[in-house]
């Protein structure tokens, strides 16, 4: 790199524009590749975007804070997107009302098992206390989980990472797991996925089946209401 190229890089790498553009560019590319590979669960666009961008930041010695100044515009939209979940919930209110009891049961079962099993397994494997606090809300959408972590004395940035990993894991394992236990009801599959693996799971569910996607969105929305109540109540018991 000669002197003037370097000056240009120094200028651009400090502007939010570069990192915002890169985030969307890498995501669109990962999304296209996922479509080309017939939505193979291992080609999850979020998972691959994250490590590609992480590598670019490492190679260019860009601090995360500088990156986030650009990426924050995308991150900000998580709040409005959470509010927007009211729309599919409203659109399917009749179907939702018909299976209200199965959904309520699956919501409570999924939310409690997700939180309790993660905390207990990690605790048994020697994961330190402060990480466990940020692990508890891992099944809800990232904005909500960060809020819970903040309120319960956890680390919001760590909670976000754990949420993302959970979503990617759920999106990858759901299809083989459900086929193995021979559950074909797309309402049940989608709903359980939304409860356990939030938005990344929901994005996956829409790739498989419209009904699964709709119920996944509802599961994610309802768990966004339940887990914030569960974590402060159950966490002291689990860590006791």
């Amino acid at each position: 790199m000669n002197q003037s190229d370097f000056a240009l890089w120094v200028y651009l790498s400090r502007t939010p524009l570069l990192w915002l553009t890169l985030t969307i560019f890498v995501y669109v590319l990962a999304e296209r590749i996922s479509a080309k590979l017939h939505r193979n669960p291992l080609a999850n666009p979020v998972l691959h975007s994250v490590w590609v961008i992480g590598l670019i930041l490492a190679f260019t010695h860009t601090p995360y804070r500088t990156y986030f100044e650009g990426a924050q515009f995308v991150h900000f939209m998580l709040g409005p997107a959470t509010v927007a979940l009211a729309v599919p919930l409203y659109a399917h209110r009749r179907t939702v009302m018909r299976v209200l009891l199965p959904m309520a049961g699956a919501l409570v079962a999924g939310a409690i098992t997700a939180m309790a099993s993660a905390v207990l397994i990690a605790q048994a494997l020697g994961v330190p206390h402060d990480v466990l606090v940020s692990l508890a809300p891992k099944s809800v959408t990232v904005g909500v989980a960060m809020g819970i972590a903040e309120r319960t004395g956890g680390d919001p940035s760590l909670a976000a990472v754990l949420v993302l990993m959970t979503g990617a894991i759920g999106a990858i394992i759901v299809t083989p797991l459900m086929n193995a236990v021979r559950v074909r009801d797309m309402r049940a599959r989608g709903f359980a996925l939304g409860v356990a693996a939030h938005g990344i799971g929901t994005a996956r569910a829409f790739q498989v089946d419209m009904m699964a996607g709709t119920f996944s969105g509802i599961g994610m929305g309802l768990n966004g209401l339940l887990t914030p109540i569960l974590v402060p109540v159950f966490l002291p018991l689990l860590l006791g």
Partner: peptide
């Protein structure tokens, strides 16, 4: 350790969710 905890707990939560959903759906005739 974190990866094992996340994989196992996500699988458990998915199975618990579909099992309870199916059971109660049968109960309400859905």
């Amino acid at each position: 350790a974190i990866l094992i905890a996340l994989i196992v707990s996500t699988a458990i939560a998915l199975l618990a969710g579909v099992a309870v959903f199916r059971l109660l759906a049968r109960l309400v005739g859905e």
